[in-house]
Design a protein around this nucleic acid. Structure first.
Lengths: 218, 218
DNA sequence: TAGATTGTTAATCGATTAACAATC
DNA sequence: TAGATTGTTAATCGATTAACAATC
C-alpha cells in the first residue's frame, strides 16, 4: 500500500526496468547512472529518475544506482519477492502452452493446476500439472492457496468463469479471453488481448515508415 | 498512408472499437451514438468522436454512426480487409498454441507454416500446418507471400531470427520473446511481453483496492 | 422546423522533459 | 575539494475532456 497514487504509465514501465536491470546484473554490471540506463533502454534519463522516485530514493548522488539493489527493490515493488500460486482455466492450445511454459516458475509464478470442461482432457497432465474438472476448482483454490487465475477459454465461457473465480475468493485474474471482464473493486484483471495486438501490428504494417526503428514499450 | 500523424494512443484503442462494434453488429444493432457507445465501452463520448475523426467523418449529425459501416471502415484502417500470411518461428509450447489457434484465420490471418530447429519437431504438423527446418524459411517466405512473422523462441535465438527475417524481406514481426528487437526503419515490431504483463498483474494485486472495478484498455 | 448528435475548437488535465539545487 | 549524478521543482508537451456551432 503506497502513500501516493502511482500513475498507470509508470507501473507499465516498471517490468521493463526490471528486465533490463536483471540483464545488467547477470552481465556483472555493478552500478549504473540514469543516463547510461536511458541510452540502453531508449528512454530519457529524466523519466527513469522520475519513475523510480515514485517509490523512493534508490540512487546516490554522484554515483548512480546499484544495479543489484535496484533490481531487488523493483522486484519487491512488483510483488516478486514471494511466490504466487496459479491455476489455469482452460487446457486448450493457449492454456496448455501457458501451463507448460516453465519460465514463469523462475519468477515465482507456480502453476498448480489446470481446469477444463472437456472429459477428454480431464485426468491428463501438462508436464506435472493435473487437468481437473471444473467442479473441483473451488476446493482446489482453497487447498492450494491459489491467488492468481488465468482465463484461457473462449469469451462465451469466460464471463461465467470469472464470476465463479471471484466467488472462490480469487483476487487477481490474468485474462486471455476477448472480453472485458467486470469484477468487484477488490479484484484486479490484467488482460492480454492477443487479437488486438495482432490488429495493431497489421495497422502499423500498413502505415510503416513513419515510425522509428526501435520497439517502444507501449 | 494517412495525411496526418495519428497518435499511438488512438491506434491502441482502434482494435477495441472494432471488437465492440463487431459484437453490436452481430447483435443486430444498426446505429449507435457516441454517447451510447461510450457507456458500453466505459470511455467518454468525446474520446470516441475525437478518435474516429482522425480517420474521417464516419457519423451523421442528429443520427449517430451506422454500426456495420463503421465496423467495416475501422477494419479497413486496421488492414483487415485483406488476408495476411503468417509464419511462426518456434514450434514449442507457445508457437504451437498460436499456430493451432483457429480464431486468427477468422480475421484473415492465415498461418502458412512453422519453423523449428528441433529435428524431433520438423516434419510434424500442427493441425494442417507443417513444421519445417529453419533452412527452408527464406524460400518459403517468398513462395507463400508471407508478410508477418511470429517470433516464439527464447530471446537468445530471437535476435538472430529477427535479422534473418528482415533479410528475407519480412516487414512485420509479432514478437513474443523477452527482448526488444531492433530492426530497420521500414520494419514494424509488435511485442507481446507476457512476463511483463504478469508482473503488472502481480503489482496490481498487491496494490488493489485503489483501482476501479473495470478492466481498462491499457 | 425542432431535436439530436456529430465534427471540431477550446480548456483542462496529466505525463514527459528540462533544469538545477542538493549532496555524495 | 571538484566532479558527478541524483532527487525534485518548473516548463513543456501531448492527450483527454468539455463545449458548442454546424448540420442532418
Amino acid at each position: 500500500m503506497s502513500e501516493k497514487e502511482i500513475s498507470r504509465a509508470v507501473i507499465k514501465r516498471l517490468p521493463r526496468y526490471f528486465r533490463f536491470l536483471g540483464e545488467l546484473r547477470d552481465a556483472g554490471v555493478e552500478k549504473i547512472s540514469s543516463r547510461e540506463l536511458s541510452q540502453i533502454m531508449h528512454v530519457t534519463a529524466s523519466q527513469i529518475r522520475q519513475d523510480l522516485n515514485n517509490f523512493g530514493g534508490f540512487g546516490q548522488q554522484g554515483y548512480g544506482y546499484n544495479v543489484s539493489f535496484l533490481y531487488d527493490e523493483i522486484g519487491k515493488i512488483l510483488g516478486l519477492d514471494h511466490e504466487h500460486n496459479l491455476i489455469i482455466i482452460g487446457a486448450g492450445n493457449l492454456g496448455s502452452a501457458l501451463a507448460g511454459y516453465g519460465n514463469f516458475a523462475n519468477r515465482g509464478f507456480i502453476v498448480k493446476g489446470a481446469f477444463d470442461v472437456s472429459p477428454a482432457l480431464v485426468g491428463q497432465y501438462i508436464r506435472n500439472i493435473p487437468i481437473l474438472p471444473m467442479s473441483e476448482m473451488p476446493e482446489f483454490i482453497k487447498k492450494n492457496n491459489i491467488d492468481i487465475a488465468v482465463i484461457a477459454i473462449p469469451k462465451t465461457a469466460a464471463v461465467d468463469a470469472a464470476a465463479t473465480l471471484v466467488k472462490c475468493g480469487i483476487k487477481a485474474i490474468w485474462n486471455f479471453s476477448h472480453v472485458d471482464l467486470s469484477v468487484p473493486e477488490d479484484v484486479v484483471v490484467e488482460s492480454v488481448h492477443l487479437s488486438e495486438s495482432l490488429m495493431r501490428l497489421s495497422y502499423n504494417e500498413k502505415n510503416r515508415g513513419l515510425n522509428e526503428g526501435l520497439t517502444e514499450d507501449d
